[in-house]
């Protein structure tokens, strides 16, 4: 245990933890949305994210930016990031929808048991990951330098880089936007209705298939945005980038209470922080270990996560 290291780097660890947490939270939303409506762990969601990382890279290629080019001006960089967000979000949403239509919908039409869904999820995940692996020759791809690495400000060790600010600001905007959509709009009410009681929702005239498609699209959009910032943060991407990140994001969703949107945000944030503090305390090798210990310990005491399963069948 290295408590000195934790105290020394506390501000830095917190800032990177929040940034990492923002990315987890965005991906976790995809798991939680689908779970809330279908009671299904969408294992293929990690690949939705993975496709997003490559879509972003492709967009930057169109700007003439690659891992060898000079850092562009701030204006161009922000424009490139914005474009990548749009392209990656749309691509990821399209992939998510494709998974729903090809791997899940046919099973729903046959009223297949829940475990069958799990297997098609695994199958879809294999297909996407392996096709991406073949297309990219399984090698890592570098991400162009976009934003300056010099901190925007540094107040008593609390230094924050432009990348970190952008990540957190965009993530918060997405979270607030999604929350508003689900809580306040008609389509959002439809989602909540199906999550709480699918049969009664149909009696109200809600088209369940459309709601499910919408949920996959929303989750895909969030994962696409997360993919862009993960690219920028880690500086590279690879065909299997989704695996561990997806696992972590899923853990984050469970931590907060799967099926609960605000829970996913909270879980992501917590997981990001725990990981960073843990790597200072026990060394970076033990980062993931501590993350899982924390998850399991929490579930022992709060078996449905921190905030419970509120989007889903509320247990009144």
């Amino acid at each position: 245990m290295n408590i000195g290291e934790l105290l020394r780097s506390f501000p830095e660890l917190t800032v990177t933890g929040v940034t990492q947490g923002a990315i987890y939270a965005l991906v976790a939303l995809g798991y939680t949305l689908v779970y809330g409506v279908l009671r299904l762990i969408n294992f293929a969601h990690s690949e939705v994210f993975m496709v997003g990382t490559f879509a972003a890279l492709f967009t930057w290629g169109l700007f003439g930016l690659d891992s060898n080019t000079e850092r562009p001006s701030i204006g161009v960089a922000l424009l490139a990031i914005l474009a990548a967000i749009v392209v990656a979000a749309v691509t990821s949403a399209a992939v998510a929808l494709l998974i729903e239509v090809t791997a899940y919908r046919p099973l729903r039409h046959r009223n297949a048991p829940p475990l069958a869904f799990l297997i098609t999820a695994i199958g879809a995940s294999f297909v996407l990951m392996e096709v991406a692996g073949s297309l990219t020759v399984r090698r890592p791809f570098g991400v162009p330098a976009l934003l300056p690495s010099k901190p925007l400000f540094d107040i008593g060790g609390w230094a924050v880089t432009p990348t970190q600010v952008t990540t957190v600001v965009v993530a918060i905007a997405m979270l607030v936007g999604l929350d508003y959509f689900v809580q306040k709009t008609r389509a959002g009410r439809g989602i909540r209705a199906v999550a709480q009681d699918p049969n009664t929702a149909a009696l109200m005239g809600v088209n369940k298939s459309r709601v499910i498609a919408l949920v996959f699209i929303l989750g895909g959009l969030m994962a696409g945005v997360a993919a862009v910032f993960n690219d920028i943060k880690t500086g590279s991407t690879k065909f299997n980038v989704g695996f561990l990140l997806g696992l972590k994001a899923f853990s984050a969703a469970v931590l907060g209470g799967i099926g609960n949107l605000r829970g996913a945000a909270l879980g992501g944030l917590l997981l990001g922080l725990i990981e960073n503090y843990a790597s200072a305390l026990f060394g970076s090798n033990w980062r993931d270990f501590v993350a899982f210990v924390a998850l399991i310990a929490l579930l022992m005491f709060r078996p449905t996560g921190l905030l419970g399963e509120s989007l889903g069948r509320a247990r009144a």
């Binding site: 297949a112 048991p113 297997i119 695994i122 199958g123 879809a124 294999f126 297909v127 392996e130």
Partner: peptide, 24 residues
Amino acid sequence: DISPTSLRFAIFGIVLIVVMIFRP
């Protein structure tokens, strides 16, 4: 690389999906 060696898990993934759709 489009060799079956490289794509075999992708094909296996498709097999999983198809089997579950027709024989859940």
